[in-house]
């Protein structure tokens, strides 16, 4: 079997004593979008944090392009081309918008100018409000800063934890459009979403997590058609 761009196998991780995620496999290949859905407390965010290195996985292997990154600190994983956008506290509140974007290209500061133009083309507001402190922006604008900062990395893999959380319906639409657009440039996207319906619509593959394990893994279109999934996770959202 060919190795995917991001390949995580048999991940066990948790906070402190007990594990929350018990032996989960997830993979995404270049240019694809995979979404993890599931009920609250299923371990979705925990899983994505383990891949980003924010939480140290207790067991399992995580590889980017065949290179093992499991057990490395988050700052080194970032240098392997992984950009993680946390759900909350995902901007530097005391720093200006432009400074936030500078932090995005921290690893390759010489690339800042070119990437800055690209990111601002996607989110013109970031240029307009460049001198404003990120903490003073509205929730939606902050989310754009967070997203823009991650794109400044020009990552191979984008890890998104609930990118639509706290956004107005119109903005959710826009956000998913942008994710799709970014993905077309060849970036692999792995996201966790409550907004399962819309997320699966733009995804290639879907994972359903429950109680710390993968309950289903199938192409996104199949999950959307599955009566079981729609009843359990999509029904209330339709």
């Amino acid at each position: 079997m060919a190795e995917d761009l991001l390949q995580a196998e048999n991940i066990c991780v948790g906070y402190g004593r007990g594990d929350i995620v018990h032996g989960v496999d997830v993979s995404v290949s270049a240019g694809r979008i995979a979404t993890i859905i599931g009920p609250n407390g299923a371990g979705k965010s925990t899983m994505i944090k383990a891949i980003a290195g924010v939480l140290m996985r207790r067991e399992g292997s995580i590889r980017i392009d065949g290179q093992e990154i499991g057990g490395k600190p988050a700052s080194e994983i970032a240098r392997c081309g992984v950009a993680y956008v946390p759900q909350e506290a995902n901007v530097f509140r005391q720093l200006t918008v432009t400074e936030n974007l500078q932090m995005g290209s921290w690893i390759e500061p010489e690339e800042f100018d070119g990437r800055y133009e690209k990111v601002c083309a996607l989110f013109p507001i970031l240029k307009e409000r460049g001198k404003v402190r990120a903490g003073n922006l509205s929730g939606g604008q902050r989310q754009m800063v967070a997203f823009g900062m991650a794109l400044m990395v020009e990552p191979k893999v984008l890890l998104l934890d609930e990118p639509s959380a706290g956004l107005s319906p119109a903005m959710v639409e826009q956000m998913f459009d942008i994710i799709k657009q970014v993905n077309k440039t060849g970036i692999a996207v792995l996201m966790v979403e409550q907004n399962a319906m819309q997320a699966l619509k733009i995804s290639d593959h879907g994972y359903v997590m429950a109680a710390g394990q993968v309950a289903m893994s199938a192409p996104a279109s199949e999950l959307l058609d599955s009566s079981e999934v729609s009843e359990l996770y999509l029904g209330t959202r339709q």
Binding site: V54, P73, S75, A78, Y84, P86, A89, N90, V91, V153
Partner: peptide, 9 residues
């Protein structure tokens, strides 16, 4: 934001 700083490399 120490965690985010670490995540950004």
């Amino acid at each position: 934001n120490e965690v985010l700083a670490e995540v950004r490399g």
